[in-house]
């Protein structure tokens, strides 16, 4: 079972809650995904719609909420959001996101490392969103990250796992769970990450903008399970040269005479 900071998770699919067409669809998709970890963001209240509250829509289910610091451009802003997140959720779980460039939404490695170090000292359970950099992953673990979340490809792009060789190194060296986050656009991408040995994947856009988000959530749940099972089963080695699946012995004559 997946264990992060002492909490066990039966499901290895984490779900983001952005961009769903309605609260009802979101709740049904979460149900279909069978996930136990859900990310949420923090924003100013829309004072024109005071009743629009996602936590009411999500009900009292037993999820672990993973608030993110999306919108933060540096460590200070992320830490301010972390404090607000803890006040809002009553828990210390945090997906740390520091993205200074709105065009790429790529994480700032220096500010992310700084913020992780400071938030761990404040007893936050920090899951930093990071570029797929194996050295950075080690440094984040050194300062106390509870997991690392390398991106497959930029947020919301549905491009899949573009930097697989880097993520493989991160997984190989990891002392904490590795959650592949961002860019996963299809169940096959999620299965691929899990086959590589990722401990979990976080998916949002691919499910929330699908034609049928509830069915897509179920498809992702199956893919994550299949990928994990395949990883545990032990994948065959890749080879450049063909290697016959059928026996090499006892073949019919090579002169095709038997066809005459």
């Amino acid at each position: 079972m997946l264990c992060i900071s002492g909490t066990e998770f039966r499901s290895r699919l984490f779900l983001g809650t952005g961009k769903f067409s309605s609260s009802t669809v979101m709740a049904e998709a979460i149900e279909a995904s069978d996930c136990q970890m859900i990310t949420v963001a923090l924003r100013r209240v829309d004072l024109e719609n005071p009743d629009d509250d996602i936590m009411t829509a999500l009900g009292q289910r037993e999820y672990t909420f993973l608030p993110n610091t999306s919108g933060a451009r540096n460590a200070d802003e992320a830490i301010r959001l972390a404090h607000i997140a803890r006040a809002a959720s009553g828990s210390s779980w945090l997906k740390l996101e520091v993205t200074p460039d709105p065009r790429t939404l790529l994480p700032d490695p220096v500010e992310t490392l700084l913020a992780t170090e400071r938030l761990v000292k404040e007893d936050f359970i920090v899951l930093p969103y990071m570029n797929a950099d194996p050295i950075l992953a080690l440094k984040l673990q050194d300062v106390g990250a509870a997991a690392v979340m390398p991106l497959g490809s930029p947020i919301g792009t549905n491009q899949g796992v573009l930097n697989d060789s880097q993520i493989e190194i991160i997984i190989e060296q990891a002392r904490v769970p590795v959650v592949v986050d961002a860019g996963i656009g299809a169940p096959s991408h999620a299965a691929y990450a899990m086959e590589m040995g990722a401990d979990a994947v976080l998916v949002n856009t691919a499910i929330s903008v699908a034609g049928d988000p509830v069915a897509m959530a179920a498809a992702f749940a199956q893919a994550v399970k299949a990928g994990r099972t395949a990883y545990l089963a032990g994948m065959g080695q890749k080879s450049k040269q063909a290697c016959a699946s059928s026996p090499e012995t006892g073949k019919l004559s090579s002169d095709l005479g038997f066809l005459a």
Partner: peptide, 29 residues
């Protein structure tokens, strides 16, 4: 920029020029 604890909402007065932020969870990834 200081978070007000809920049990202090009643006893905390808002003053001239104060900056108030009211924040909540929304959908996000």
């Amino acid at each position: 920029t200081t978070i007000i604890q809920p049990d202090s909402y009643d006893s905390t007065d808002i003053g001239e020029g104060d900056q108030v932020e009211i924040i909540r969870f929304v959908g996000g990834g």
